[in-house]
Design a protein around this nucleic acid. Structure first.
Lengths: 201, 201
DNA sequence: ACAACTGTATACCGATCGGTATATAATTGT
DNA sequence: ACAATTATATACCGATCGGTATACAGTTGT
């Protein structure tokens, strides 16, 4: 079986728009193929099933996200300089997350809406491993911090979840226009400041 | 039209279990009435529609949550004492959120899974106002802080969202057993510490 | 020119969707 | 006792669900 790239890309594009706007369950295959200007057998020819389409859709984007996070989270210890050490890496990572969320809003909306999805939700088993890999990258970053800053040892898990929770909270905030701030470098610094020094900043 | 409370309660109980486990869209009315041991006309007699059932279900729980947050978030200024001022109220509120999340796990799982629901999701318009009211209570609390601690002025929105984001992040963590910590008083203190003083705590 | 393969559409599948018309059993007021 | 009302079930509605059998047009290798 071969593929017509343009047709496949078009299906993925329409799927992203619909799933992002209404959620997986609420989008029917018929609705999807109408939007893409094709018929059902074409969709099943390329993706096998509705779930297969969803998986292929998120796999690509999650790959990019993971690569970004792994790269931006690289830590070159420089403990003598505050701003060139942990602070630098966290700011870079937050900034890159915001950049990704800005440039892939439709996809990242799906990520957010799936974050706390119930375990027995029909699509949970699809997104589960991608969520966890994303967490692992951030957790690994804090591990590399604590290897140098031993006072952080044992708190890597809680730091990873807190940091990701804050990042996602702010991205959700941005998407819903509750805060006038945009997801610029500036906000990344504010988030890191809050994360590192709390309310007294 | 009158009601048989026990039947109605039973439907609500089954609805909570199913919606919490699979999400609104993924639960069919047939599945629901089977679980409750009734037939469809009975459900429609009491709730009018699937959406009506969902609304009545969450309205009750959100009412409790709102009342709890409003009460726990009351601020009696005592700026001369650090631990009896903002710190006290935040710890009490966090603690109460964790308590609520422990005692109403099924409901709060629904809350979390709806947190970042897309705007055009079929149930978004139902949960929207409840989410926002919850945020407003916390925002009001920070407003009452900043009336005394003027250095907090202008940051009430960002504080409210950060605080709620952290709370929910930890509750999600607890539900997914990623952290061995349970949602006890102890964790509430850690969250407030992280919120107020950041990573250096 | 013709066979093999790629890609797409028509037309259909049984099952299930959310919702309801109607009948009737059970309760209540008088 | 009997009418009115409450509460429940049978049986059904048109629409749509996710998915597919089949035919066939377009392309490609030889």
């Amino acid at each position: 079986m071969t593929v017509n790239p343009s047709v496949k890309e078009n299906i993925l594009k329409c799927a992203l728009e619909l799933f992002s706007a209404k959620g997986y369950e609420a989008v029917s295959v018929q609705e999807l193929v109408n939007a893409a200007g094709i018929t059902k057998p074409t969709l099943y020819y390329y993706f096998g099933s509705k779930e297969g389409l969803y998986e292929q859709l998120i796999a690509g984007y999650y790959g990019m996200l993971e690569q970004m996070a792994a790269f931006a989270g690289q830590y070159l210890p420089n403990p003598s300089s505050y701003f060139d050490d942990v602070h630098l890496v966290l700011t870079r990572l937050a900034s890159k997350y915001f950049e990704f969320a800005r440039e892939n809003e439709l996809f990242y909306r799906m990520v957010l809406s799936n974050l706390f999805m119930p375990d027995s939700s029909p699509v949970y088993h699809i997104v589960k491993k991608y969520h966890f890999r994303q967490y692992e990258v951030v957790h690994g970053m804090f591990k590399s911090f604590s290897a140098v800053h031993t006072n952080m040892q044992g708190k890597e898990t809680i730091f990873a979840w807190t940091f990701l929770g804050m990042i996602n909270s702010f991205i959700g905030l941005y998407y819903n226009n509750f805060d006038s701030a945009s997801l610029e470098e500036d906000l990344a610094m504010r988030v890191v400041k809050q994360f590192m020094h709390g309310i007294h900043s």
